[in-house]
């Protein structure tokens, strides 16, 4: 097995390799508890990237490199897993988060001792008939239920208005109460093309917990996407870049046409929502500087888009 790192070789030698070896060993031995017990915050990489595996295997690998789910989920906590289920599309289209990944994440949360794991997304077409369809067709409803996840339907009664400190345009937002009431929030976007923001990744996925999304569109999508991340940063961001929709995003092509999908078989994981978006942009083949909201979020100090300054652990399966 190999683990590579670009920032600080000495730092890596001290911590990164030992972490990687321990993590890998722990996975092989199936003793993740041991790993979690040994881990300290200082050794957690800024970003983990894994490729050439299946979604579940890549997640397990990345999580072990990250220090185990125990870093994020403590015993008895409630967790919200937020995939992208915005459109009534099958998993093959790449418009929604991979259901197997969601299932594996939920299982991992329960293994770490989570009390309840909720799965939620506000769909783009907000009607009852359609959101049901989205949950079903994306395969996420069945996958989540199989792992014991609780699917939360969209409704208008569960939102609470919050003030976003330091926001330039989006000064208030109505957030789903579930996010506010839960201990841990895991953001699980899919990397895909987007017709109005170039790309949809982790920061864009945060729009799915907000009710007043039309305000974003009305007053400048990029600034609002960046502004919202000033209020709520997820505990962890896991980017699904297994099947990447390269054009016709965010919904994918409609009837009769094959989706322009590239099997990139990649998974990214980071606590830094800006860093993970920047890395995913590179995976897609674009420059993070060209994605307006990433640039704004970096300037607003939400995170770091300069990947060279980060401690990145990569692994190819």
């Amino acid at each position: 097995m190999t683990s590579t790192q670009k920032t600080d070789r000495r730092e890596f030698l001290k911590k990164g390799l030992s972490l990687g070896l321990v993590a890998g060993g722990a996975v092989i031995l199936g003793r993740t508890d041991f790993l979690q017990a040994k881990e300290t915050a200082a050794t957690i990489p800024d970003l983990v990237a894994v490729k050439n595996g299946e979604p579940d295997a890549m997640f397990k690998k990345a999580m072990s490199l990250m220090g185990g789910m125990g870093q994020f989920v403590k015993k008895g906590q409630t967790v919200v897993v937020k995939p992208n289920i915005g459109f009534p599309r099958k998993p093959e289209v790449g418009a929604t988060t991979n259901p197997l990944l969601i299932k594996t994440i939920i299982e991992s949360c329960y293994q770490a001792g989570a009390k309840k794991v909720y799965v939620f997304d506000n769909v783009v077409m907000p009607t009852s008939g359609n959101s049901q369809n989205c949950y079903k067709i994306s395969g996420i409803e069945d996958a989540a239920k199989a792992a014991g996840g609780i699917i939360i339907p969209v409704d208008d009664f569960s939102y609470k208005q919050v003030i976003i400190p330091g926001a330039k345009t989006l000064k208030t937002a109505e957030i789903h109460r579930l996010i506010l009431d839960s201990n841990v929030f895991i953001n699980v976007p899919v990397l895909k093309h987007h017709s109005s923001t170039h790309l949809s990744i982790a920061m864009k996925n945060m729009m799915g917990i907000v009710k007043n999304r039309m305000e974003y569109h009305l007053s400048g999508l990029d600034q609002c996407i960046a502004d919202f991340c000033l209020y709520k940063k997820p505990s962890l961001n896991i980017v699904d870049a297994y099947r990447v929709l390269m054009s016709h995003g965010p919904a994918g092509p409609r009837d009769g046409t094959a989706p322009n999908v590239e099997l990139k078989k990649t998974l990214l994981m980071s606590r830094d929502i800006v860093a993970v978006d920047a890395a995913a942009t590179r995976i897609f083949g674009k420059n993070p500087e060209d994605i307006e909201y990433i640039k704004i979020a970096h300037q607003q100090k939400t995170g770091n888009m300069n990947l060279k300054e980060l401690k990145i652990v990569t692994y190819s399966m």
Partner: peptide
């Protein structure tokens, strides 16, 4: 009218092991 998009075969990048763009 029926929209006819360019058809795209599903591609897989067979990349060398250490190939990450960062």
């Amino acid at each position: 009218a029926r929209y006819i998009a360019k058809t795209f075969p599903v591609q897989q990048k067979k990349a060398p092991q250490k190939d990450f763009p960062f």
